[in-house]
Design a protein around this nucleic acid. Structure first.
Lengths: 201, 201
DNA sequence: GTCTATAATAAGATAGAC
DNA sequence: GTCTATCTTATTATAGAC
């Protein structure tokens, strides 16, 4: 005879995190007050702290599902018939949030906060390591199939694949004229040339 | 008969901005209190606000000379006998701050804050635009000399040269194992292959 | 020009009624 | 589970003496 419906409980938590994400994207973590979050979610202060122990936990919750998302993208990429197409598809998935206004700013805020919140840092670092490991696996496979240059270290190459994705977020934050959708083409060109795809070997 | 020695005045301002930069790199802009800055600079609150109108102005002052620095690097790069070497030297200069601990975090904080402080945003945007324009100029020259692939749009290429530098800062912030000095080699490889340098055309 | 003291405000989190 | 009211603490910036 439990008093809480876990499904409703999770749904409410999700509702709060989504409302909070909008606030954090605009005002940043520190400048967003718990009152802002309450107003955006349509709840009271007492209610907010019933679902989360503190403001930092709300922020962390936004990114807690990212690891699972990435794992799913990696699985799809691995299952692709063509390794190279799988890799490009994965990169597209990683860039998808850029279609949402404010997402780039939220990621910037995440990186900045991760340097100060130990728990958040571990979340980010773990996701990052797993993502890079997965990409390194794909690259190793592509190299064995002679689809890309086999002389480049897989881990190093994976780091820079993620780095290029980072660059998109960084550019989108700094330069208002930067068009992520259009720049995907250039990103693919850089990837192809860097990794030696399509050299007809 | 002026009462202030402008040289001493500037020196003190510099002293304060440098002390403040250390605080901002560790705690971030919002979490750094004016009291922290005073303690680090060895001055009192009254003195701090004699030199700066508010905390934001202290933060902005840290980056106010960057535009001049970049212009100097661009001039050196343009004057280089070999355009390609000039470009690589410029990229090295842009990466130099990474040798200083905390610099990556400070840049992350800069980008995050630029999204909220209009004056700071204009400072960052102006520097960014001028840097990209300068690099585009170098790339155009290199293309005319047939040192690189001439089919890539100079402005787009310049955006990605800066993007790759951004990626170094981003990676350095997120991944504690990332070694910027070692990764310069890979960065140069990506640049060479992307821009078609050394194709012997 | 530098200090101490403080005004003015705001924020995160909790208590306890319903 | 949700609310209102509030406790407690911290912060930017200023006033005014030296």
């Amino acid at each position: 005879m439990r008093t809480v419906d876990p499904v409703k409980y999770e749904a409410k938590r999700r509702h709060i995190t989504e409302a909070a994400a909008g606030c954090f994207a605009i005002k940043g973590f520190e400048k967003t007050t718990t009152a802002d979050i309450c107003a955006a979610a349509g709840i009271s202060s007492g209610s907010l702290f019933h679902y989360f122990p503190n403001k930092g936990a709300v922020f962390r919750a936004i990114f807690e599902l990212d690891g699972q998302d990435n794992a799913a993208y990696l699985a799809t990429a691995s299952a692709a018939e063509d390794v190279w197409e799988g890799l490009l598809g994965l990169v597209d998935e990683l860039l998808n949030p850029l279609e949402t206004p404010g997402a780039a700013g939220l990621v910037t805020e995440l990186v900045a906060q991760a340097g100060r919140d130990e728990e958040l840092f571990e979340l980010v670092a773990r996701n990052d390591i797993e993502l890079r490991a997965g990409i390194a696996g794909l690259l190793g496979k592509a190299a064995r199939q002679e689809r890309i240059d086999g002389s480049i270290d897989s881990d190093t190459a994976a780091t820079w694949v993620v780095g290029l994705v980072d660059a998109m977020y960084s550019r989108a934050t700094i330069d208002p004229d930067f068009d992520p959708a259009a720049q995907r083409v250039t990103l693919r060109l850089i990837l192809s040339r860097f990794l030696g795809h399509g050299l007809g070997r």
